[in-house]
Computed example of a mutant assay.
Amino acid sequence: MDKHSPAGADYTVQRRVAGNHDMRMDGISDLVLRARGGSVFDIGCNRGMVGYEFAANGAKIVHGCDIYEPGILAAREVFADLRAVESRFEVVDLTGGPASLKAFGQRRYDFVLCLATYHKLKRIMTAEELTALMQHFGKMTKTYFGWRGTSDKPDENEDEMAVLDRDLGEVGLKRIHTSYISAELGVAAIWARS
Rank of each mutant, 00 (worst) to 15 (best):
residue 1 M to A: 15
residue 5 S to P: 00
residue 10 D to K: 15
residue 10 D to L: 14
residue 12 T to F: 13
residue 12 T to V: 13
residue 19 G to F: 08
residue 21 H to E: 14
residue 22 D to I: 07
residue 23 M to N: 10
residue 24 R to H: 11
residue 30 D to Y: 02
residue 31 L to M: 15
residue 37 G to M: 06
residue 39 S to T: 12
residue 40 V to K: 09
residue 41 F to N: 05
residue 46 N to S: 12
residue 47 R to H: 14
residue 47 R to P: 00
residue 52 Y to H: 14
residue 54 F to L: 09
residue 57 N to Q: 12
residue 57 N to M: 12
residue 62 V to T: 09
residue 63 H to R: 12
residue 64 G to I: 03
residue 73 L to I: 15
residue 74 A to D: 15
residue 75 A to R: 11
residue 79 F to K: 08
residue 79 F to M: 05
residue 82 L to V: 10
residue 84 A to L: 12
residue 86 E to W: 07
residue 86 E to Y: 09
residue 88 R to S: 12
residue 89 F to T: 02
residue 90 E to N: 05
residue 92 V to G: 03
residue 93 D to E: 13
residue 94 L to D: 00
residue 94 L to V: 03
residue 96 G to C: 07
residue 99 A to L: 06
residue 101 L to M: 15
residue 103 A to N: 06
residue 107 R to H: 08
residue 113 L to N: 10
residue 114 C to R: 00
residue 115 L to F: 04
residue 118 Y to L: 06
residue 119 H to F: 08
residue 122 K to N: 14
residue 122 K to G: 07
residue 124 I to L: 07
residue 126 T to D: 04
residue 126 T to N: 05
residue 133 L to C: 09
residue 134 M to I: 10
residue 134 M to C: 14
residue 137 F to V: 01
residue 137 F to P: 01
residue 138 G to T: 04
residue 140 M to V: 00
residue 141 T to L: 03
residue 143 T to R: 13
residue 143 T to M: 07
residue 144 Y to N: 04
residue 144 Y to E: 03
residue 147 W to P: 00
residue 149 G to H: 10
residue 149 G to A: 03
residue 151 S to Q: 10
residue 151 S to R: 11
residue 153 K to S: 14
residue 154 P to I: 12
residue 155 D to M: 02
residue 158 E to Q: 12
residue 161 M to F: 13
residue 166 R to W: 08
residue 166 R to N: 11
residue 167 D to Y: 09
residue 167 D to G: 06
residue 167 D to Q: 11
residue 169 G to M: 03
residue 172 G to Y: 01
residue 176 I to Q: 04
residue 176 I to H: 02
residue 178 T to P: 00
residue 178 T to S: 10
residue 179 S to R: 04
residue 180 Y to R: 10
residue 181 I to Y: 01
residue 183 A to F: 02
residue 185 L to W: 05
residue 186 G to T: 07
residue 186 G to F: 06
residue 190 I to H: 01
residue 193 R to N: 09
residue 194 S to P: 02
